[in-house]
Amino acid sequence: MVDIRKLWSVFETPEKRFVVHQDLDLTVQRGEVLSIVGGSGSGKTVLLRQILGLETPTKGEIFVLGQPVGQLGRKGAASRIGMLFQHGALFSAFSVLENIAFPLRELKTLPSALVREAAMVKLQMVGLKPEDGDKMPADLSGGMIKRAALARALIMDPPLLLLDEPTAGLDPDSSDGFVTLLRSLHRELELTVIMVTHDLDTLFELSTRIAVVADRHVIVAAPPKDVIAFQHPFIHDFFLGERGQRAMELLREYPFAV
């Protein structure tokens, strides 16, 4: 689904030159839930934005669904790739339903009754109520914003879904609810999911594979158990610290395969 080869990302300021990625390789298979983890400043979000074509890498190639990433942004991109931004990025001037219907409406060929119904179906699939469709994004809670944004990302049933910190800023209850929703959608819609997250609970509950970005490249991309067994200072700190131990309980309770 996604193939990243020999990727270099270099940011230059007048004083200094930052190499964020150096010869980074990553492949994502169909049906996977791949989580990208790494310390802050390790370029996880940059990587996600490069997969989306929002940023151009300095060197290297990215293929998404077999095409170079530059060709994704054309008309109907919403049918190929869906993105859930960290803060939802709902259009604040539109109601929730208009937000969800927006990619379909922009095709300009579908009758508006059909667009409305299709948006209504997606609205309810993510666990919102039909009445919520008329609300404005400013009137929604954090969890509802994420759900509405997810519905918008999925409106054209893209095979690939990208998530940036899907549970950041949610309380534990809505976070759990959202993770359950993501898991059921992944199963029902046969999605391939790539996500960036810091939340270990989310990480262990959803991922079928974890890619760790450190030292400017992917040091390991493997199922969670193998990642934990990998010897690296970052992995040790990240997963085996006190915080990690707590989340690790989940490993015993939940099976990984989703």
Partner: peptide, 12 residues
């Protein structure tokens, strides 16, 4: 039968 196909003009 996908939205992407319906996007073609006159098809629908």
């Amino acid at each position: 039968w996908t939205a992407a196909q319906f996007a073609q003009p006159r098809l629908l």
